[in-house]
Design a binder for these strands. Structure first.
Length: 372
DNA sequence: TAACCGTGGAC
DNA sequence: TGTCCAAGGTT
C-alpha cells in the first residue's frame, strides 16, 4: 500500500478525480434513484457475485412484489425463493427473508442504520454492511469488494494476493484512512471504475480518470495485478434424472433444507456410476412401488460453481397405481413415503411448472421432456 | 484457511 | 469448448 503521508498528491487524485469522474460517468441504475436502505439492501444482496446487468430485471420485479421490509417479512419463503429463481446462490434469498423477519420482530420494521448493527443480520457481511451503511446512511466505512481490491491493488502496484484475509484487512484499513466525507459516493465510484474501466481483462487505462496516479500503469504491470490464486476446477458427477409422469403431471421433489439448491424443487435425481437408469429407478422406489423400466429421453450438462452435473434423463410410467384416476389427477400415490418427506413431493402438469421455484439445472430440461 | 454455494456474460 | 469471474457470506 502507498504511504499516505509521502504520497499526498496521489491520494488527492484518487479522492477528487475519481469522485468528479463518478458524477458524470456513473450508470443510471434503478437502485441509484433512491436512498431507501431497504432498496439498497436488496440491490447489494443481489449484486453479490452477480453482474449488475443480470440483476436489474430481478431487482425491479422484487421491489415491485416486496416494496418494503414489512411485505418481505410477511411473505412466505416459497414466494421469496420464487422471486429469486434463476439468480443462483439461493441462500441469499433465504437470509434476506430471515433478516426481514428479524428487523420487523426486533425493531418494529425500522431498518438498522449503522455498520455494526447491519453485519449482525444474516447474509450481510463486511462488504454489504459497508455498502448499505455508506450509501444509505453516509457512514464513514469502506465497502471492499472485488472491484475495489483490483482498483486499489493496481493503483498502489500491490502484488499481494487479494484472496488473502490479511490483504483484505490491510486494504480496508488503508481505504478508511483516506475515505472522504462522501463515503458512499467514494465507495460506489471505486466499484464503478472497476466495473467500467479498471476491468479484470484489458483495462481501459487510456480512459481512466486516475491513470496519472496509478502506480501499476506507470510500471506497466496492470496485466499482472491483481494477484489471485487460481480456483480449482469443478468435479464432474454423472447423474440420472427421473421423469415420472402420471395423467399429464410430472413428479417433483423438494430438495433438502441445506446444501446445493436447498429448498428448491427438483426432478428426482441420483448420482450414478453405471448410467443405465437403474440408480434413479432405485431411488424412485422410495416413492413408487411399481414403475416401468427407464426410457432414455436425453442428456444435459449443468455447470455449478464447484460441481458439474452430466445428466442422463430417463422417463418412467406408473403402472397400476392408486391415484391414476381422473378424479385424483395429481395425487401422491405412494403409501409408504417416510414422514420427513411429507409435503415435499408433488405432481405438476407442464403448464403449471411455473408455480414452482425450479433451478436452471432442471428448468432447462423442460424442453427435453415436453414430448415424453 | 478453504470449501461450499448458481448462473450468465465475455472472450 | 474452455476459462475466467462477477457489488461475497457462511461454515
Amino acid at each position: 500500500m502507498l504511504n499516505t503521508d509521502n504520497n499526498r498528491h496521489l491520494i488527492n487524485i484518487l479522492q477528487l478525480d475519481l469522485l468528479n469522474w463518478f458524477k458524470t460517468a456513473k450508470r443510471n441504475l434503478p437502485f441509484r434513484q433512491t436512498k431507501d436502505p431497504y432498496s439498497i439492501w436488496i440491490s447489494e444482496i443481489m449484486a453479490q457475485q452477480t453482474q449488475i446487468d443480470t440483476l436489474i430485471p430481478y431487482y425491479n420485479r422484487f421491489i415491485d412484489r416486496f416494496p418494503d421490509v414489512i411485505s418481505l417479512a410477511a411473505a412466505s419463503e416459497d414466494d421469496v425463493i420464487k422471486a429469486w429463481e434463476g439468480l443462483g446462490y439461493y441462500s441469499r434469498a433465504r437470509n434476506l427473508h430471515q433478516a426481514a423477519k428479524m428487523i420487523v420482530a426486533d425493531s418494529n420494521g425500522i431498518f438498522p442504520n449503522r455498520f455494526d448493527q447491519l453485519i449482525k443480520l444474516p447474509g450481510i457481511g463486511p462488504y454489504t454492511g459497508g455498502a448499505i451503511a455508506s450509501i444509505a446512511f453516509n457512514e464513514k466505512v469502506s465497502a471492499v469488494d472485488g472491484n475495489v481490491l483490483r482498483v486499489i491493488s493496481r493503483y498502489c502496484n500491490s502484488f499481494d494476493d487479494i484472496g488473502a484475509a490479511k490483504t483484505k484487512k490491510s486494504m480496508t484499513q488503508w481505504i478508511e484512512s483516506i475515505l472522504p466525507a462522501a463515503a458512499g459516493d467514494f465507495n460506489e465510484a471505486l466499484m464503478e471504475l472497476g466495473a467500467l474501466v479498471c476491468t479484470p481483462q484489458s483495462p481501459k487505462c487510456l480512459l481512466c480518470p486516475i491513470r496519472c496516479g496509478c502506480q501499476s500503469f506507470s510500471s506497466g504491470t496492470t496485466d499482472q495485478i491483481p494477484v489471485k490464486k487460481k480456483k480449482q476446477k469443478q468435479i464432474t458427477k454423472k447423474m440420472e434424472v427421473g421423469i415420472v409422469k402420471q395423467n399429464g403431471g410430472l413428479f417433483f421433489i423438494r430438495r433438502p433444507e441445506s446444501g446445493l439448491l436447498s429448498g428448491m424443487w427438483s426432478f428426482p435425481i441420483a448420482e450414478t456410476a453405471a448410467g443405465n437408469g437403474n440408480d434413479i429407478k432405485k431411488k424412485l422406489g422410495d416413492y413408487f412401488p411399481a414403475l416401468s423400466d427407464p426410457v432414455f429421453i436425453g442428456e444435459s450438462r449443468h455447470v455449478f460453481s464447484h460441481i458439474i452435473w452430466e445428466m442422463t434423463v430417463y422417463g418412467f410410467n406408473l403402472a397400476g397405481m392408486v391415484g391414476e384416476t381422473a378424479d385424483i389427477p395429481y395425487a401422491q400415490t405412494a403409501a409408504d413415503v417416510s414422514e420427513d418427506q411429507t409435503g415435499r413431493t408433488q405432481f405438476k402438469p407442464l403448464s403449471a411448472v411455473d408455480d414452482l421455484a425450479l433451478p436452471i439445472a432442471f428448468s432447462k430440461l423442460l424442453t427435453l421432456i415436453k414430448d415424453f
